[in-house]
Design a protein around this nucleic acid. Sequence first.
DNA 1: TTTTGAGTTGTTCGA
DNA 2: GTCGAACAACTCAAA
Length: 492
Amino acid sequence: MASSDTPAPTLLWFRNDLRLDDNPALRTALETPAPVVALFVLEEDEQGAAGPRPLGGAARWWLHRSLTALAADLERHAIPLVLRRGRAEDIVPEVVGETGAARVVWNRRYDGGGIAVDSALKSRLKADGIAVDSFNGSLLLEPWEVKTGAGEPYKVFTPFWRAARAAGDPAPPRDAPSANPERLRVSAPPGEALDDWDLLPTKPDWAGGLRDTWTPGEAGARDRLEAFLDDRLARYAGERDLPGAEATSMLSPHLRFGEISPRRIWAAAAHRAADDDRISDRQLSKFQAELGWREFSNHLLFHFPDLGRENFQPKFDAFPWRDDPDGLRAWQKGQTGYPFVDAGLRELWATGYMHNRVRMVVASFLVKHLMIDWRAGEAWFWDTLVDADPANNTASWQWVAGSGADAAPYFRIFNPTTQGEKFDPEGDYTRRWVPELADLPKKYLYKPQEAPREILERAGIRLGETYPRPIVDHSRARQRALDAFQTTKTAA
DNA sequence: TTTTGAGTTGTTCGA
DNA sequence: GTCGAACAACTCAAA
């Protein structure tokens, strides 16, 4: 409790915005002399249903590291970070009571479960006489700010993005407040120890590849951004599709946890493009459009909160998904016998990440070659991706499946062999993640089942033993999918 | 209200 | 090896 001669504290509730830079809720909290107490709630609902979707395993690892970084950064502003676990609807008012806070601030989220919690809390706190302010900290534009001429949400990306761009440049980012260790502070109410949340895997510790790949936290995000601007943006348009080229930004998990704001990324990329002759408008706008897809996914999720559970196009409710636990397991483990597909799934398992091109190929393989429900793939990605995001993950899976908004036409079925030859022509990426094929000449790298016996022998490969034979035949599987899609036709 | 043009990322087949 | 057409219709968004 604050003593009588100090102003009542402000409670700053962190969620998917684990940064100090360009953080409107933080900035607002620091505008007054009131001391600030920060709170993070690991939202776990004993009853299950309510609230945001519980984090997957890879995201839990990330969160541990990100909160560690955030707590250290906040310390430089004399802001304690309190950790609690449970239902936010109960915990936030509890902490308000314990601290005597007169005001609560947060940055908005856009998933249905999160919105439900936030709006219930807002009314409850206001009824108790607590001031509540929420802000846009994670999107370039609020999902309701972009509307069709008829006032409806968009369902097609291109007109959505055209309209969003026509609204002008996004608001410029605002720098983090300068550190102020002299700031008035209150002693923190009791919180839990991060280690007690068991966010890090122990038995077994599968996070070695994650540690080698990522630096969660705001500083790590800024380093990624700088590396992207220095080296990758200039070749982004041409090479972003090549998983061996290292031309993507790798910012997705940092954006997922709000360790960097899209406004910061937008402004930094535009600024760099203006200064650097190597970066053409084409490169820049290609990258901006990818941020646009993130906006579009959030737009969709906000307006269609069932996006993660229900087919966006109801006619897909009639699709004859197969129940195939063995196929699903082979896919998850990267043992499909299609090397490009297996490379992607193994990259995912090892690093918590998969290159975007490969995500499309593996998703298409699950949904079309194996005819397994996209929700099973979405759930696997949710558990294994460090950037697993309720908007991007669900919108993208539905897009690949053909059930989504502005989705790929049903007859677009990726050929997993051709995709490898086209996008990993030297095989660097595939050999890295499927090392048992490392010595196979590139002529057969994507179709080891067609390699002559002596070539396999020389490469040390025994099909069916050291590497699986294809679990489905491509052209038969393709035809089966095409036939199945007939059932989604309204006239059928 | 009606019309019109357009819609992220592909594959296969046959000339 | 390269190229264009077919694959299917449907819905969206704006005029």
